[in-house]
């Protein structure tokens, strides 16, 4: 549904987005994740048709956001960062106005406003002035405004910035509900927001796409690789090589595919080894267990460290920074 092809955006000498290519299918919920100043808002604003790429092109359902901008915009519901609203208007008047900008009239407009109010749970505040609402409600009004013409694509720029934890939870749950029947792009620098609401994560750092995939896939392919094993030599058995049993075990780790090993004393005669596999997705648990028992060591713990999305995110950013 959305195709970004080699998109670059420059502001004078500063490159905000560099050669970004991305395809997003219908019904996907995609999170653009990156630190502040990474290029998320620029990418979002270009996709919403508010500014052109310096190079490359963006298409929404076959409509170029520059050459065929009005048709592309008709398919988009957009919530800008910090949710600008006309604070002097009443909620329902504001939504009627937003609907009229999208061509909704008469019965269609009334139904669209009622539907959006219903979906965003704004019934009890529909006659109140926007300026008198809490930040959480204002965010919902912004979301309702983006939903009025029932667009197949929702673009939400930092939808929970500035909200308290309860409001953040409400907005996340609302985004989850809205994503059941449309494509959603959410930008955020808050990792749990993206992790909890999106099927797919695109990590952006310094204008470049650093990682792209389902959170679980990113963790499996980009993170992890470390194993922890705690061992203790069995009493009364001598080392086959004449050295220590632990020394023999460590000697076999390279052959198993380990790239680095750190050992520490776990107390009471136990030694804790952190074994990092040469390949990030390599599972060494079975090999480690066999090697340890073969060398006459008892095992009380053997685990493969699961990387969090946060580690993937941080390593993507650090990779770029280094």
């Amino acid at each position: 549904m959305i195709h970004l092809r080699h998109v670059t955006k420059r502001y004078g000498p500063v490159t905000a987005v560099a050669d970004a290519s991305l395809s997003i299918g219908r019904g996907e919920v995609v999170g653009l994740l990156g630190p502040n100043g990474a290029g998320k808002t620029t990418t979002i604003r270009m996709t919403a048709g508010l500014m052109p790429p310096t190079r490359g092109s963006i298409e929404i359902d076959g409509h170029d956001t520059v050459d065929d901008s009005a048709k592309a915009r008709r398919l988009i519901g957009y919530l800008p960062e910090s949710t600008p609203l006309y604070t002097e208007m009443r909620v329902q008047d504001y939504l009627r106005f937003r609907g009229s900008l999208c061509g909704l009239r008469g019965r269609g407009a009334r139904e669209g406003v009622d539907r959006a109010i219903d979906r965003c749970s704004l019934g009890e505040v529909r006659r109140r002035r926007v300026g008198h609402l809490s930040k959480g409600y204002r965010q919902r009004v912004g979301l309702a405004g983006a939903l009025l013409h029932d667009p197949p694509l929702l673009i939400l720029d930092e939808p929970s910035s500035g909200l308290d934890p309860t409001q953040i939870r409400e907005v996340r749950s609302l985004i989850r509900d809205l994503s059941t029947d449309r494509t959603v792009i959410v930008s955020s620098h808050v990792l749990p927001e993206v992790e909890l609401t999106c099927d797919r994560v695109v990590i952006i750092a310094r204008g470049k796409i650093r990682a792209d995939g389902a959170p679980a896939d990113l963790v499996a392919t980009q993170g992890g690789g470390a194993h922890v094993i705690e061992v203790k030599p069995n009493a009364g058995e001598a080392s086959a090589s004449g050295g220590t049993k632990l020394g023999d075990f460590e000697g076999r780790l390279k052959q198993l595919g380990a790239s680095s090993v750190t050992t520490s004393n776990a107390g009471d005669g136990w030694t804790r080894l952190r074994v990092v596999a040469a390949k990030k997705d390599q599972d060494l648990r079975l090999g480690l267990a066999r090697a340890a028992t073969g060398e006459g060591l008892s095992i009380r713990e053997l685990t493969r460290e699961r990387a969090s999305l946060e580690q993937v995110f941080l390593s993507a950013i650090e990779e770029e920074g280094s």
Binding site: G49, R74, P80, L101, C102, G145
Partner: peptide, 12 residues
């Protein structure tokens, strides 16, 4: 206030 973005992002 930034409401220009909602105006310009609309099909109007």
């Amino acid at each position: 206030s930034g409401t220009i973005e909602t105006l310009l992002a609309s099909p109007a």
